[in-house]
Nucleic acid binder design. Structure first.
Lengths: 371, 371
DNA sequence: CAACCGGATCTAAGCGCATTGATTGAGGCG
DNA sequence: CGCCTCAATCAATGCGCTTAGATCCGGTTG
């Protein structure tokens, strides 16, 4: 690019000072109309686009919010096999057996969308970064340095870094706060309550009495869900496990775990999973072993991702108001831009039970008006 | 926030000059280890996070790419009815009749995802903005001022603005270039070719001879698709219409249009639509009028969005390599960051025919190995 | 006619960092 | 023991913009 024009160039071409050029754009009413026109014309001729960096520096705020998300590329390789396959050109024109939908609109993506929409709606720009625990430190600081407020997904940024950043700008974490209090704001959903309702449904409606909880308890959200699960069992006078059947984050573990249960003849009546992706992995594993879902074993998830309605059987789950979570995050940040030490909040949003096929419910079409 | 610390604060606490602080972070090898440690410790104590604006200003580049997208909120109201309904809390726990999936992972979202992944992969931050023709002018300039390269979706930014921005930073438009040459780079797909293949399939495999093309020709992409459609008809010695049955962008128009055809008894054997969303609207309209798809009329789309596999009947379409388009955009921008006047490119990517139910093809499960 | 006033414009001082060229000092060499 | 070299550090400048305060000027007011 041939050296982009600056206020100085515009000013000299228009025959005014740089201050006037700046005013012409930021406070047009302060500048006489004729001069303003001249300035705009000069800017047009030169192709002037003001530098965001310079503006941000001078004003002390950037007018942008940041969101730090997962980087899918950093996930274990086997998780993104479908993606790789997709890039294979010679497979063009094949039947659509790709399973990319299992990876794309995930929980984070829908939350992110809400964040975007709300930012745009309020005239803010949005800076997005991605990474995982390891990569993040530098990357997240990089982003934090360019925005007026930051939202992060759990497990993307070490708490220490979060604390440091929150001394500079407001920060909100999109998860249940960990038990030992948190240094930042939070947007949560009714994790425990939602899972309790779902479990109750399995017990009351379907009469299941032997349920397993599957999920890597890597976030406070999953933990809260496990507690909701346990609470429902206790309320029904069923034995509640001390710990869930942990699956770690490797999908293979789910396969091993289930084949163990199958071989030992101790398959439960239902698997209650901490998240939708885990539930989908469980369904896959069961299918591969010839175990029918839901007639032989029920499976449920938690999230409400798109893939849950695409797979067969469709997934019974608890839907989080993902888009709205993103919106709330923006709103929390905005409220805190001005006054520094507004108290931290934890805004909890309602969830919604979504009954589909995988729990044993048949498909109904309630949209048909009863005659 | 209590006034965030700067290099000056860190420098004085560590007892060095600001230059050394800067070096400690940017070129660690230039600083003796002991001093570096002292500096990092001081930075820790103060909670120092370098200002992106200042850095950007000083270095002359920001290390971020921009993407300018549609703002769904700016769409006609009736298009987002499902969204509104979703926010209604009292509807919690209802059966999942919401149709949000019709709006979310659309074409743009998947392209955007590719853009994000590629940026992160290369260690770049990403700034996203949204708007439509009207709102954009200022917003897009705002973003253009903060990034080193910009990608835009068609119809989001007036060409004049695009030209101006491209004098400052490299720009790539995610669409077929318009016939009269373009001032920016492009990432395209085989629009015409893909549509030709699809139409051929309808003619050859299903024997349809009376097809209508439906689509608002608001982008060069849609135009190219129409040309592909016409080409296939001509090749089969079928009469090709001069113009498509335009639907404008108001879904109601599709309803009117189809009810007209129905009332006059001139329903074709198939509707070939310019995009998936339009095809879904057509299917909806037909269903509402009691016309079965595909037994009575076939319908096809173009895009490959997720909703196409969720709806009944599932949508036959042409799938664009959306994620890859985003990736290519990043790659094009990056190649042009250094050398200013590298020639403009138009990188065309392959598409893929996806045969599902709505064209009359039955569901096959090719993954089953033949015995 | 002088003092005054308000609108339009300008001068000048940063904003926080990167970076060039200068400075310092310790070790190497003859 | 003096001179040179090189590594480590520093002083100073500029990046492009915003904005408080100064200035200028034509028009008012008494």
């Amino acid at each position: 690019m041939p050296k982009s024009p600056t206020v100085y160039d515009v000013a000299s071409l228009a025959g005014v000072s740089i201050a006037t050029v700046s005013f012409a754009f930021r406070q047009p009413e302060r500048v006489r109309e004729s001069t303003r026109d001249a300035i705009i014309r000069a800017a047009d001729v030169l192709g002037y686009v003001p530098s965001g960096s310079a503006r941000g520096l001078a004003r002390g705020r950037t007018g942008a919010l940041g969101l730090f998300s997962f980087d899918y590329l950093a996930e274990p390789a086997d998780r993104r096999k479908p993606l790789t396959a997709l890039n294979d050109d010679e497979e063009s024109l094949r039947f659509d057996l790709n399973e990319e939908f299992r990876l794309f609109p995930l929980y984070v993506d829908e939350v992110q969308r809400g964040f975007e929409l709300e930012c745009w709606h309020r005239g803010l720009a949005l800076m997005i970064g991605g990474g995982n625990r390891s990569s993040s430190e530098a990357v997240v600081a990089d982003i934090a340095g360019r925005v007026d407020g930051l939202a992060v997904f759990p497990r993307t940024v070490p708490e220490e870094t979060l604390r440091r950043i929150s001394r500079r700008i407001p920060v909100v974490e999109l998860s249940e706060p960990s038990q030992n209090g948190s240094v930042v704001n939070h947007v949560t959903v009714q994790n425990a309550e939602g899972m309790r309702l779902l479990t109750e449904h399995l017990i009351a409606t379907h009469g299941y009495r032997n349920l397993h909880f599957i999920g890597a308890l890597v976030t406070s959200d999953s933990e809260a869900r496990f507690e909701g699960f346990s609470a429902a069992l206790k309320a029904a006078n069923l034995p509640a496990p001390q710990r869930p059947t942990v699956s770690s984050e490797n999908p293979d573990h789910i396969v091993w775990l289930i084949s163990d249960l199958l071989n030992s003849g101790s398959l439960p009546q239902g698997f209650v999973c901490a998240t939708d992706p885990e539930a989908l992995d469980v369904i896959d594993a069961l299918s591969d072993m010839g175990v029918d879902v839901p007639s032989r074993v029920a499976v449920t998830g938690f999230d409400g991702i798109a893939a849950g309605r695409i797979v067969k059987p469709s997934l019974t789950t608890v839907r989080q108001p993902m888009e709205r979570m993103g919106r709330e995050a923006v709103s929390i940040l905005l409220e805190r831009l001005g006054d520094a030490d507004k108290p931290r909040v934890n805004r909890q949003l309602p969830v919604q039970l979504v009954l589909r096929e995988s729990c044993g419910c048949s498909i109904r079409r309630p949209s048909q008006a009863p005659a």
